[in-house]
């Protein structure tokens, strides 16, 4: 973080979410609830050039750090994103988000007849990798859903 590699405002303390898939940044902000939380200074770069991915998005949030659950939410929207923790202008931690095998309380089951839609229960989904495809299987109604079908609570 010595130079300013991106055309995005530099932060002293906070979180930099980097290597977000091109044009997924707004969705990441949304699942983190940051699109309605106006307490932090947020800067964003959309469709920046990336050597590795062609295009990428970057989000910088001042004075805000993320929880494990928030890492998982980012992973569902954009696997392979990285989360950098910035303290005193320097990167103090770097995490690559990883889709967990079991996802608790993040995904809303799309099945309207599922018990998780009727009772106050934390949803539980099991991540299934089938070749290149990712599906989420509801622990309760046992139905599998494609990535595009699920929404985040």
């Amino acid at each position: 973080m010595n130079d300013r590699p991106y055309k995005v405002y530099r932060i002293e303390n906070g979180t930099v979410i980097d290597h977000i898939q091109g044009s997924k940044a707004i969705r990441v902000l949304h699942v983190l609830g940051l699109d309605t939380d106006m307490n932090n200074l947020i800067t964003m770069g959309i469709n920046l050039k990336s050597k590795k991915f062609g295009k990428k998005d970057v989000i910088k949030i001042e004075n805000r750090y993320l929880s494990k659950k928030e890492f998982d939410k980012i992973a569902i929207v954009s696997p392979d994103a990285t989360v950098n923790v910035i303290k005193d202008g320097k990167r103090s931690e770097k995490h690559i988000v990883k889709l967990p095998g079991k996802i608790n309380g993040i995904i809303r089951c799309p099945n309207p007849d599922c018990i998780t839609r009727k009772e106050k229960i934390e949803s539980v989904f099991i991540t299934q990798h089938n070749e290149d495809e990712i599906k989420y299987r509801c622990h309760y109604c046992e139905r599998s859903f494609e990535k595009e079908c699920v929404s985040i609570i």
């Binding site: 099945n111 007849d113 599922c114 018990i115 998780t116 009727k118 009772e119 229960i121 509801c138 622990h139 309760y140 109604c141 046992e142 139905r143």
Partner: peptide
């Protein structure tokens, strides 16, 4: 409701048998 029996088994301390939960 699908998953009703699973939920019951998780909150009760006696054995639960599913006699059918919707289309599941």
């Amino acid at each position: 409701i699908e998953g009703a029996a699973r939920y019951a088994s998780e909150i009760l301390s006696i054995p639960v048998i599913n006699g059918g939960d919707g289309a599941n």
